[in-house]
């Protein structure tokens, strides 16, 4: 197990290394002179030179990469050109909205999908199954940001149960914060829950056809016991893969959904940074997102090993 975890950790490190090189290359090498790019057409040569100095653009590519990557490792993400504050501070502030939103949505999606998928598989071919399959088919087709707009229309504009947007901050306590994130999280979770429920259903049906389920039934387990004791854990393996993938979709989706609800999260920050050509902020944010996705992949790999003994070789 330790050996497996260690080998996954090494591959995590390698992925991060390669990803950081790619991001660095796209942001700092392809545009030519980032300083001139950031300042736009009307910049004076003096201003460009000053910014180059500030950005440390006068070193070699390798030394610039090393100082950027080294900075990232120590939590120094550089200073935002437009906000004039350390990027790390900007990000930390916004992360407290985007990350809880993604996790909230992930929790919702999983909590909805598991029982629904299980029910559909148990009632396979029945009315319940067709109903669930039809609903999830629709759920997949709905763009989350449009669904978010409909939620605002119904629950904020008409029913006035929730506010249409904005975020009160966590200092007012957990509940007001969660309440403000509820509509966005529901909007994010619904399409993902539809996908996950379908995956859960087909994984369960596939598992229920396996020989060991027949063995379990021959032992005297009822259908229900066979599902709960034998099928569920085996079906979890493909489901875990999808949950891992979903995290990256939810994080990306959170960025878009923040726009519908005017949430001051990473999404708002990244779009502002793009408009203001603040490459330093864009570069750090992209790296952070990719970092999150790679770490989640690593965690999913560890979860596999926890579920599946075949991955934990005795050595």
């Amino acid at each position: 197990m330790l050996r497996y975890a260690l080998s996954r950790a090494v591959s995590l490190g390698l992925s991060l290394l390669v990803a950081s090189v790619v991001i660095f290359a796209v942001i700092e090498v392809i545009p030519g002179d980032p300083a001139a790019y950031m300042l736009g057409m009307n910049a004076t040569p003096d201003a460009v030179a000053a910014l180059r100095e500030q950005l440390g653009l006068n070193g070699t590519l390798v030394s610039r990469y090393l100082s950027w990557a080294g900075g990232m490792l120590t939590g120094d993400f550089g200073v935002s050109y437009t906000y004039k504050v350390p990027v790390a501070d900007l990000v930390a502030q916004r992360l407290w909205i985007s990350l809880p939103l993604a996790l909230y949505a992930l929790a919702l999606s999983t909590l909805i999908a598991f029982p629904v998928g299980l029910l559909a598989a148990a009632r396979r071919g029945g009315v319940t199954d067709y109903g669930i399959m039809g609903t999830t088919q629709l759920g997949i087709a709905v763009p989350n940001f449009w669904f978010a707009m409909l939620l605002v229309l119904v629950f904020a504009v008409n029913l006035r149960w929730f506010s249409a947007g904005g975020f009160p901050g966590w200092q007012g306590g957990l509940l007001p914060g969660l309440k403000a994130l509820t509509l966005p999280a529901v909007a994010l979770a619904l399409p993902q829950a539809s996908i996950l429920a379908r995956v859960m259903r087909s994984a369960l049906i596939e598992t229920l056809g396996q020989d060991y389920i027949r063995t379990a039934r021959a032992k005297g387990l009822s259908r229900r016991q066979a599902v709960l004791r034998h099928a569920l854990r085996n079906a979890l393996i493909p489901v875990l893969t999808i949950i891992g993938l979903q995290f990256s979709f939810l994080l990306a989706g959170a960025i878009i959904i923040e726009n519908v609800f005017f949430l001051p999260g990473l999404g708002r920050l990244v779009f502002q940074a793009i408009t203001q050509r603040d490459l330093i902020v864009v570069e750090s944010l992209v790296m952070l997102l990719v970092f999150a996705v790679i770490v989640v992949t690593f965690l999913v790999d560890l979860a596999y090993a926890a579920v599946d003994p075949r991955l934990r070789r005795r050595t």
């Binding site: 793009i274 944010l285 996705v293 992949t297």
Partner: peptide
């Protein structure tokens, strides 16, 4: 590696440049 860059992130990178 590409799976670590959701389309939105790729779009952000390309747009930024």
């Amino acid at each position: 590696l590409i799976f670590a860059f959701p389309s939105l992130v790729i779009a952000i990178l390309i747009t930024a440049v």
